[in-house]
Design a protein around this nucleic acid. Sequence first.
DNA 1: TCTGGGGTCCTAGGACCC
DNA 2: TCTGGGGTCCTAGGACCC
Length: 424
Amino acid sequence: MFALVDCNSFYAACERLFRPDLQGQPVVVLSNNDGCIVAGSAEAKALGVKTGMPVHQARDLIARHKIVVFSSNYALYGDISQRVMATLETLVPQVEVYSIDEAFLDLSLMGEAELLPLAQQVRARIARWVGVPVCVGIAPTKVLAKLANHAAKRYPATGGTVVLTDPARRERLLALTPVSRVWGVGRRLSGGLEALGIETALDLARADSGMIRRRFSVVQERLVRELNGEPCLSLDTQPSPRQQVIHSRSFGEPVTALPPLRQALSDFAFRAMESLRKENLYTGRVTVYLRTAPMGKPQQLFPDTLSAALSPATADTRVVVHQALALLAQLWKPGYRYGKAGVILTDLRGRDQIQDGLFAQQGEPDDRGNALMTVMDTINQSGAGKVWLAGRGMQTDQRSAWAMRRAHLSPAYTSRWCDLPVAR
DNA sequence: TCTGGGGTCCTAGGACCC
DNA sequence: TCTGGGGTCCTAGGACCC
């Protein structure tokens, strides 16, 4: 048996945690750049706010109902997430952290009679220790546990917990669920399934798995099996090392000239390399991409992506910035309005897996580069000041041409000393 | 006027091998 | 007149997730 624990309106719940005055009030949280709505409290959703909605479309709604708006505060959400996960680990031995607000639990050693009490205990303990509401779905497979969790969220009579062991109950739920709500069925696939007359989760469960595999792929075949209670996805408590690092941003305003793009990409590469080094990894390939603005307009740059191998693999920001800027120079064309750009690092590996180039000099320069990176990282994490490469330009974050819009940012209540809430 | 950012997995197709 | 069969590895692109 698997449990899926999923926080309710997680970002909104985090924002309310230190603002008790907002309990029961409609709250929404915006994406980076304040572009669209990525989370809303139950009250906000009841007023018609939908996740993914562009902010400008919701402006009237927000004003009319005095909905409280926050920019994304990932420092806060990340910290609260860790508390939720740590609390789960006090209750069960095997936890897979699936996303910032979800975790799968392995309940294979538990008797059926213990499942519901455990689900209730999870809810109660997280509410008491962390202060955010969660729902719990329990079932024999991950896909069914996801479904059980949806049901726990959707039907208040469940009390926030659904245990899907009874086959008749499972079938009723499958019949009620549109196929598009099944985990792993996105927009494209639900269209294809509906064309085959598969409209509910039950239709999909009853489809021939071989036919589904032929028409779609092995992923969808697994889905059919999982819906029938045959586990194909196991608990992954030790996720494999990550395979890519992306740093990308939409610009506050479209950018046309090359110099500001060079600054932005220097900055993105710099930050991407910082997160790479945090995990003691090296990168063997850097990719740069540009998106033209505005969205949905035909004017499009081609190609919009270029990449280059780095040999040997490196953890040195200077090497990657240099290469990224060379790629940008090839990619950039005058006359376009650029709305977004990004840097992707792939072919990641640990120190012990680096292959020197055939004609490379042994040792020294790489070690000196690493020493310099360590000094830079140490300074930047010390809180005493920041250093960066001059190519990024001299502006501070908030004033640069590509700065992110974050007009409604809440304090970092739990992760910055000067933002600690004061109790009177 | 205004639509985020960071990930994973799978498949097809090309290049290459013996 | 006439040119196989069975593989691996890599990358791009699509689909999906939160």
